[in-house]
């Protein structure tokens, strides 16, 4: 597809996802407490973003969708830490986020280029240099 077409189709796709997620979350909040389907989890999602713009935009778009929330990112390991509200399995949330990222990158980049993601879980060891660890 041509680049401008990809931008417009991404916008429509995102608007649709945004409204669907809103309906989903609203319906769940209005359900009686014991029937609520919330099944939250914090999942490390491998990401293909590279530039500052892409990282900022993908984390904003994830947060803007009700029910998913970016907690933290690690550019070094190329990981987005995403809190999801309805997570049945790790794979389902990862697939959902990565589809959004694929579409976003195709809309942002004139040539989609490299969409590969890390496949192994990173080994995270705290160091005393200030390196994105959780200590302030």
């Amino acid at each position: 597809m041509m680049w401008p077409v990809r931008i417009i189709s991404f916008m429509f796709w995102y608007a649709k996802e945004f409204l669907l997620a809103n309906v989903h979350v609203t319906a769940d909040i209005l359900r009686p407490r014991r029937k609520m389907k919330t099944n939250p989890a914090i999942i490390a999602v491998p990401a293909a973003s590279k530039t500052d713009t892409e990282w900022t935009l993908i984390s904003c778009l994830i947060t803007l969708t009700p029910g998913t929330l970016t907690l933290s990112i690690s550019r070094e390991h190329k990981i987005l830490y995403v809190h999801g509200m309805f997570v049945d399995s790790r794979e389902s949330l990862v697939a959902e986020i990565q589809e959004m990222e694929d579409r976003m990158l195709r809309a942002l980049r004139r040539q989609p280029g490299d969409l590969s993601r890390p496949t192994e879980a990173p080994v995270v060891v705290p160091s005393d240099e200030h390196e994105g660890s959780d200590e302030p």
């Binding site: 939250p40 914090i42 933290s72 995270v124 705290p126 959780d134």
Partner: peptide
């Protein structure tokens, strides 16, 4: 996170966890 949170990958990066 609340008890019902079934997976927490971010917990693995916490310093007190080490």
């Amino acid at each position: 996170p609340a008890e019902i949170t079934h997976t927490d990958d971010l917990l693995k990066t916490r310093r007190d966890n080490f």
